[in-house]
Nucleic acid binder design. Structure first.
Length: 570
RNA sequence: GGCGCGGUAGCUCAGCUGGUUAGAGCGCUCGACUCAUAAUCGAGAGGUCGGGAGUUCAAGUCUCCCCCACGCCA
């Protein structure tokens, strides 16, 4: 039995994510986790919310709530929606957890001990009215270049000129609008990533099976310009993990917190601790410490391409620098972007379909199937309502749903709701079994290697094979001359439904459950071969004709949704 | 401006280290069937692989130049 540690990039706390976010990490991660469990492997699948940083503070302020309260509420909402999409996390944690506080401080202490942290004094704008330092982009003012009055401290959006906050004319706080600003000196910690450049390079070179997208991004950051830069890992904020050196105070760093990008990936580890605490103290270190049983774990991360640098460089630098035997990622599966109707999905502009809205319209399986079978694997891909409608109607309703319908209903009318006895497999059945064996093997290969689209393609072909068989065998004609053979044919059809349920479950868990329930299958076993799988339903066992598994999306619905989601989010 | 990823049938996309008539699904046309969610099955039409030059016995697949779209960065 293999052991799989699987993590999805952790979604930021300040709102509900859109379908592009979903298909870029959580959904494919769930597909893989469900598949590995179905194969009988031991899986720990973790995800969490990423809760620290200025955007969370501002979102909380906008909602008129203390940031801790806001984050707790949003975490609950995101967890609820994840459940709605059937994301099967073993634990959905929080980067603000006590476990992550302790672990982040621990890592910082280890890095300091290894002389991989240096202190840097820099100048930063302080807002007296807000009582806080302001990140550059939260300072607004008039652009000295073009006169635009909403230029930000890092850049003018109007003329795109790169700015320093002190360049702005009449600078003001974007948080409160106050002009009572001053420049103060402040001290920050930098992680000396540059010192780890060779180690990181060697580590990445050892990953020959990573997607081109992943390694090319990592290499670029590693070698571009002056090479890998040291990175500030602290901020002057209230909301975050207080800077401490392990268990000890860090003189001169009082009142500061770690930068969100330092503590967020550490939450992957801390989350296992949260999982353990939530499950009666299960041993989590056997998943994360190679000196405590994790040496046989295969660790796979899923994320969008924008997260790749942090996962290939910053986080590994933290782990390597600690000098401790933490499990490092084995395979890193990254995704491109899903576009919405010719443009980008955008959280800030409310463009596209958001996870809560999607579930209001249709059940999870519809989205899971379409998003996974069209996921942006090798290049950006496109969501349009026409493509979505076509894909769902054809694959789910016409090919799979209708297959289940025609087999069960034909059986009910000719033999009753019982798996019919009699007849033996002939050439046509053997041919089908041979085809399904080949496809089953290929499907497993594709799923093992996380080739999501190709897996979906293969699964679809497996569904189609059932319709081809039925069309050729024509039990509705056979039964007139040879009822025994017709019984065998329809029994095979029923077995195919069970076969489909098992293979399809990682993609469409709810529909798979309905199929199994209809056939009175309690616990599905992953088929070792098609021959046995298609001979597994005991003749004489009763079943129930299920409701249609999938309704078609009508043109009216499609147009309706097209209009409804054309503008920004209400 | 620099860098990155792409530009393959009407649409969405496959095509590893160059090798017979360039593939899939959808859509479209025609035919078959009638058990089923007017579903299914079969057949067919559709591409000078963004443009140009080069390397090679042989290039969608390598090299160079150009054009276009998108993304990131300064």
């Amino acid at each position: 039995m293999q052991r799989h540690l699987i993590t999805s990039a952790i979604p930021y706390i300040n709102g509900i994510k859109h379908l592009g976010n979903l298909v870029g990490s959580q959904l494919p991660a769930d597909l893989y986790a469900r598949y590995q469990r179905a194969r009988g492997n031991e899986v720990l699948f973790l995800c969490a919310t990423d809760e620290h940083g200025t955007p969370a503070e501002l979102a909380a302020a906008k909602a008129g709530k203390p940031v801790a309260e806001y984050c707790a509420e949003m975490h609950k909402i995101q967890a609820e929606i994840a459940k709605g999409f059937r994301l099967s996390f073993d634990h959905f944690g929080r980067s603000s957890s006590p476990q992550n506080h302790a672990l982040t401080q621990h890592f910082a202490g280890r890095l300091a001990d290894a002389d991989l942290i240096r202190e840097v004094t820099e100048k930063q704008v302080y807002s007296n009215a807000d009582g806080r330092f302001l990140p550059d982009r939260y300072i607004e003012g008039t652009c000295p270049n073009c006169g635009y009055d909403k230029a930000r401290g890092d850049q003018c959006e109007n003329c795109t000129k790169q700015l320093d906050p002190t360049d702005l004319i009449e600078p003001r706080s974007a948080v409160s609008g106050s002009t009572d600003l001053e420049v103060r000196e402040t001290k920050h910690l930098y992680l000396r990533q540059s010192a780890l450049k060779d180690d990181l390079n060697a580590w990445i070179d050892s990953k020959t099976d990573w997607p081109l997208l992943t390694t090319s991004i990592a290499k670029k950051w590693l070698h571009d310009g002056d090479g890998l830069q040291d990175r500030g890992i602290t901020r002057d904020l209230d909301w975050g993990i207080p800077v401490r050196r392990g268990d000890a105070d860090w003189p001169g760093m009082e009142g500061k917190v770690f930068y969100v990008w330092f503590d967020a990936p550490i939450e992957y580890i801390a989350c296992a601790g949260e999982w353990s605490d939530a499950h009666g103290g299960a041993d989590w270190e056997r998943w994360w410490r190679t000196d405590k049983g994790a040496d046989d774990v295969r660790y796979t991360q899923f994320m969008g391409k924008d997260n790749v640098p942090f996962h290939t460089l910053s986080f590994p630098a933290t782990i390597l620098g600690s000098g401790e035997p933490w499990k490092m990622v084995d395979h890193l599966k990254s995704f491109n972007y899903l576009n919405y109707d010719g443009g980008q999905f955008s959280t800030s502009q409310g463009r596209g379909v958001f996870m809560d809205q999607a579930l209001e319209i249709l059940p999870a399986d519809y989205w899971r199937w379409w998003l996974l079978s069209n996921c942006p694997e090798t290049s950006d891909s496109e969501f349009t309502w026409e493509l979505f409608q076509q894909g769902v109607n054809k694959d789910l309703a016409d090919v799979l749903g209708n297959f289940v319908s025609r087999v069960t209903k034909f059986c009910r009318s000719k033999f009753g709701e019982i798996v019919p006895k009699g007849g033996v497999y002939g050439d046509r059945e053997e041919t089908l079994i041979a085809e399904l064996d080949a496809r089953l093997t290929r499907y497993a290969q594709m799923m093992d290697s996380m080739e999501v689209r190709k897996s979906a393609q293969e699964l679809r072909a497996i569904w189609v094979a059932g319709n081809e068989y039925l069309q050729a065998a024509a039990p509705w004609a056979t039964i007139k001359e040879d009822p025994e053979t017709a019984a065998m044919q329809i029994r095979l059809g029923l077995n195919l439904i069970s076969f489909y349920a098992t293979l399809s479950a990682p993609f469409i868990p709810d529909a798979a459950q309905k199929m199994n329930t209809a056939l009175q299958i309690e616990k599905a076993q992953w088929p070792s071969n098609a021959s046995d799988a298609l001979d597994s339903l005991p003749a004489g066992q009763s079943f129930a004709v299920p409701e249609n598994l999938f309704a078609k999306i009508s043109d009216e619905d499609r147009k309706d949704w097209q209009d409804r989601f054309a503008g920004g989010r209400a």
